[in-house]
Design a protein around this nucleic acid. Structure first.
Lengths: 197, 197
DNA sequence: CTTATAATATTATGACTATCATATTTTCAA
DNA sequence: TTGAAAATATGATAGTCATAATATTATAAG
């Protein structure tokens, strides 16, 4: 071979990185081949040397979103005592910073609505991500001695995802902040995670 | 005038009805002028006799979504005793029927993700819809004698919206149903709405 | 330094889109 | 029944998109 052995692989990763950001900003259907390639410092010509089709590309980009940085926070949870881990995660997930992060951030709220409109491959990536997050949270709830962890985790995840989406849709910053604060405190209250007394 | 005095108004309504359905099915950016006009039994030519631009059209269609049928359920809530109203609404919102309703159904979960990408006019319609639903639920929570209704309503709304979205994203029917059941029962439990004992 | 080839760029094509100018149809009033 | 105007249709234009064929560049091996 003439180029570096992983030259193409690095380019591919760069393109997928940009795609993941663009999907968060514009949604999976509005990202264009030429746009993403350009953001990655390339022209659109080489696209089909990397991906079979745009559909395939979007599915790969979505899988990529679940591998990247946003999962780091989740992995860190595993090493912490359950109470601390849950408090940390709720505070992170419902933080203004996470709400405003338009290029990283958990894929779940970004993609939920479009998942039924995407390919089977994209759906599978999404489902895996949901299962993973569900399992980690449920494990910590169980470790805390909560008997109905399996029931509770559905409700907790729904509130996390719904709150981030509604906070992003609220243009009034103060109201958006208030929504996050309220959901944070309600979540901790109903999971008996309050730090005081 | 030569045509019936409200001929144009009826056509306009028909077009907006179809647009509202199409937005739920495909998202606000993927609905096309020609497609919606065709669904309404017209050709694309007359479009600009009804709307100034596509952006304006989408904003009007979104406003229309909040006026139509899906709000009926909400209005019915107002006439019921608070406990019954809340139980009814939760059971409706988190029903498989509402999850599967791809042409009617509450606009909140359908639009949340796209709202930051739409015009100011569209955002304002959405915000009004959120406020309205928030107020009605909060009023019923207060009527039930719950002191922290303003805090709770944010959490409840987030869970309702998030649960519907996640249920729609879950391709496994049994798992999707289970998610809805769990959120229904968790919501009623934490709001002390359980019917038994 | 040369050459082969992998990686990327240039350019082209056809499908689709919003928009608009113009033509045609519809139907009330006379 | 006819004329006029309102409502809608036909057809065109310019732009964008995914896709692909071909050309060019970059670089590791000889």
């Amino acid at each position: 071979m003439r180029y570096d052995s992983d030259h193409k692989a690095r380019t591919r990763k760069k393109v997928l990185d940009e795609a993941a950001k663009a999907i968060r900003e514009e949604g999976p259907h509005r990202v264009g081949v030429a746009g993403v390639m350009s953001r990655a410092g390339l022209t659109h010509g080489g696209f089909y040397a990397h991906f079979a089709s745009k559909e395939d590309f979007i599915a790969e980009a979505i899988a990529h979103m679940f591998e990247g940085g946003p999962t780091a926070k989740l992995e860190k949870m595993k090493g912490l005592p359950p109470r601390e881990a849950l408090i940390d995660y709720i505070d992170f997930y419902l933080s203004p910073r996470h709400r405003d992060s338009r290029v990283s951030g958990c894929p779940l709220p970004y993609l939920a609505v479009d998942i039924p409109r995407l390919t089977e491959a994209a759906r599978q990536s999404y489902v895996q991500g949901v299962r993973h997050l569900t399992d980690v949270i449920a494990a910590h709830l169980s470790a805390l001695g909560r008997g109905r962890a399996d029931e509770e985790v559905a409700s907790v995840l729904a509130e996390l995802v719904g709150a981030v989406m509604l906070a992003r849709a609220e243009p009034d910053a103060a109201r958006s902040d208030a929504l996050l604060v309220r959901c944070r405190s309600e979540l901790k209250r109903r999971l008996d995670l309050e730090t005081a007394h």
